[in-house]
Nucleic acid binder design. Structure first.
Lengths: 206, 206
DNA sequence: GTTTTATACGGAACAATGTTCCGTTTAACA
DNA sequence: TGTTAAACGGAACATTGTTCCGTATAAAAC
């Protein structure tokens, strides 16, 4: 049934010709799924997504044989976007500002994907590799921002990126209690904490 | 599994007599639901619970009009059992030992009800009052254990029960990553931390 | 441009599960 | 024992995940 090299379902191109309509529908599905997940949570009906994307149910299931596959794909896509944002932000702002903005962006990613974290921890094998992807992709991105800001003397240099990621992650999950702007405030506080230990006249470059 | 602190909640006297079979079925349902939730998670099919309880679907829905109502009822029952356990443990062991055992019991409650925490934060109105119930019931129970142990000079006295509850809660949720005994070890560590600052006859002061 | 073919498409049909409805049974009481 | 209101059971309905397959079509071959 399925041909040989369909290992990479992402926007990878190069080996085999992908039919144009297939690629188009896949993109439409991912975009629709993102919108629906964001507004209705990851438990939203698949039919709603297919309809929003303007494709049939069969098409959706052709590209994402299981509901979890669609969730994972959307998630990967968002992780990539988040990691890429680090580069853009670093280019457009001074280090500490880029760091602050990225932290808020990451927090937004977490809070808007509510229901996703429980799904990740559900033991579903479709999500197996996703947690690693999380760290492998996001941790370097944040580390770069942190290092740059530390070198510029704008934040302290003794912070572990993973700690920050986890902290924001935890804050984001709890936001069901207090609303999304609570998370925003707490993240802002975290960033201020990073800035605290680093005076402008205190270069700590070894 | 320890479960002796469950006391029957339904024998409310005051208005009309509750039919014996109704009470019996309700108990059977709660017991079956607890077993099924523990082994299969809170998303287990209702039919399975009804069957295990030996009643029809209609009976289940008569007592718990929504699936969430059943989850909430089981949860309340377990919270009560956990709170009651504090009293039994305090009577049977020396203060720090009672505290340690209760912490493990609470941790067990959290980890075995996996999937419940996400449900609580899902915004479903059926769970509205449950979070409050959590704190109102468990916080005093833990406070008593803490105070007794502190007065006996077995643990430090500057600990906020809520902090401990939250800490164990967070540890329990993360246990999907590392298995339940990881949580157990971490809780044990917490308790040792409590013991650390308090020598016998040494009113602690850092 | 036409033909060919593998691929993709759409949606009906199936399966699992939450929920409702209603005829039947029965515990409680006189 | 007879009456009755409450409870029971499970078929039927609604929603949603998933599969299947006949049809349509993009890309290649000619």
């Amino acid at each position: 049934m399925v041909s040989d090299d369909r290992e990479d379902p992402g926007t990878e191109r190069g080996h085999r010709h992908v039919r144009a309509d297939a690629q188009r529908n896949m993109d439409a599905l991912l975009e629709a799924a993102l919108a629906v997940f964001t507004s209705s949570g990851v438990d939203a009906p698949v039919r709603e997504i297919a309809e929003k994307a303007g494709v049939g149910i069969g098409t959706l299931y052709r590209h994402f044989p299981q509901r979890a596959d669609l969730i994972a794909a959307v998630c990967r896509r968002e992780i990539d976007a988040c990691a890429n944002a680090a580069v853009s932000l670093a280019a457009a702002h001074k280090p500490s500002e880029a760091l602050a903005r990225w932290m808020q962006r990451y927090a937004g990613f977490i809070t808007t994907k509510r229901g996703l974290a429980p799904a990740l921890h559900s033991g579903n094998p479709a999500f197996e590799g996703l947690r690693d992807y999380f760290e492998q992709r996001l941790q370097p991105a944040l580390r770069n921002l942190l290092d740059a800001a530390a070198v510029a003397g704008e934040v302290r240099g003794d912070i572990d990126p993973d700690d920050l990621l986890r902290a924001v992650g935890s804050l984001g999950m709890r936001s069901g209690d207090d609303g999304p702007e609570h998370t925003q405030r707490m993240v802002a506080l975290l960033v201020d904490g990073l800035r605290y230990g680093a005076g402008p006249g205190l270069p700590k470059t070894p």
